[in-house]
Amino acid sequence: MALTLKDLINKQIPLNGGHRMCGGCPVPVIVKQVLMSTDHPKIIGNATGCLEVATTIYPYTAWNHPWIHNAFENVAATVSGIEAAHNALSRIGEVPEHNKDAKFIAFAGDGGTYDIGLQSLSGALERGHNMLYVCYDNEGYMNTGIQRSSATPIGANTTTTPIGSESYGKTQSRKDLLSIVAAHHIPYAASTSPHNWMDAMKKSKKAIETQGPTFLLYFAPCIPGWKIPSDVWKKLSETAVKTCFWPLIEFEDGKWSLTGESKLIAEGKMPKIPVEEFLKSQGRFKHLFTDKNKHVIEIIQKDVDKSWNYYKGLAGY
């Protein structure tokens, strides 16, 4: 199946309108990109979080796939159970024709993945379930009102790392989740961003079609959490990639590579922009643009460069 918009518009959309995600939230777009990347029947598990809450306010559901929410920290285990059920029911001929070739997809935010759900994710990856786990990473606990998570970057103003006379926001680096996931030696893992829909959908397709556990780390700007207007996230995502704040990475059969803009930057075919460009349009970093805090921008730049150089090295540049 070719991934062209002309084809895609004729297909069943996974998530109907009428859901109550914030106006302009990219997460429904992420769902669309992942689930429309192949024609397989799909069974979806969703961790507690914005996506779960806002798409299934009883008695309404936006989902056109079989879908389950269990709890916050256990979507990987829940989907493990569904996949195991499919294996067992297949053996005794109880899977109906329309679900014979089903794929199993988990969606969770960064809180449900980096933090409270890390154990459940690790267990599922190690056991080798045939599932794709998608983490939409908006860099904080946005559903509960913008608290820091281990995915929140240095310098971000959140409600549990508020700025004050003694605080410039979060002081720690983001957790390197992609490397943690890759350390499970699963067949496929990647980071991507919804602005580059072709990169995202190719990776989604590959992840879904690969046998065994696969993982996608998706950049997901948050309108209230990052204090940005509702119509800028596509541009902002692109800037995140072009500053190397959010490199597009692939880990396939034990080999690392870069894709999209990140590949061009590594090859010197596209300039690497200073991280300031990414920070300056977001309310959560506004306090950094003062005399008192501007040194933090340098700290962030160093943090970004360190991570970028690490992954560039892994990818052989």
Binding site: I68, A77, G81, A84, A85, G123
Partner: peptide
């Protein structure tokens, strides 16, 4: 037995996977 035995990493995941399986129709 015909059972899929899921060797979970905790009881929390044991119940979670059991819920997933039962919800799937098993």
């Amino acid at each position: 037995v015909n059972t899929e035995y899921v060797t979970v990493e905790s009881e929390h995941s044991a119940m979670s996977a059991t819920v997933g399986a039962a919800a799937a129709g098993a």
